[in-house]
């Protein structure tokens, strides 16, 4: 799994950090998403998918890799 984010769409809600704090963080200065784990380990996949699904700005894309 690979994650990409659209910083321009990110609204700084922090929902992703609330759901998957090992994968996402926010910048201190403007709250924009920071990806801590661009290729999250398997045990983080379900939470990462949920974070992408819940993101109110649709700023997180999850790409499945073989």
């Amino acid at each position: 799994m690979k994650i990409t984010v659209d910083e321009e769409k990110c609204c700084g809600a922090g929902q992703c950090v609330l759901i998957a704090p090992e994968v996402f963080d926010q910048r201190d200065e403007d709250g924009i998403v920071v990806v801590l784990e661009p290729e999250p380990p398997h045990d983080q996949h379900a939470l990462t998918r949920e974070a992408a699904a819940v993101c109110p700005a649709s700023a997180i894309q999850v790409h499945d890799t073989p």
Binding site: G12, V17, L18, Q26, D30, G31, H42, R49, V54
Partner: peptide, 30 residues
């Protein structure tokens, strides 16, 4: 203009039985 700090204070103050859970978190199959 302080999104991250607001989220951190939310986690400090707004998590509990009276205010709901931090997320709806429905654990799904991987």
């Amino acid at each position: 203009n302080m999104p991250k700090q607001a989220r951190l204070l939310r986690q400090k103050h707004l998590v509990g039985p009276r205010n709901g859970q931090p997320t709806t978190t429905v654990r799904s199959a991987p």
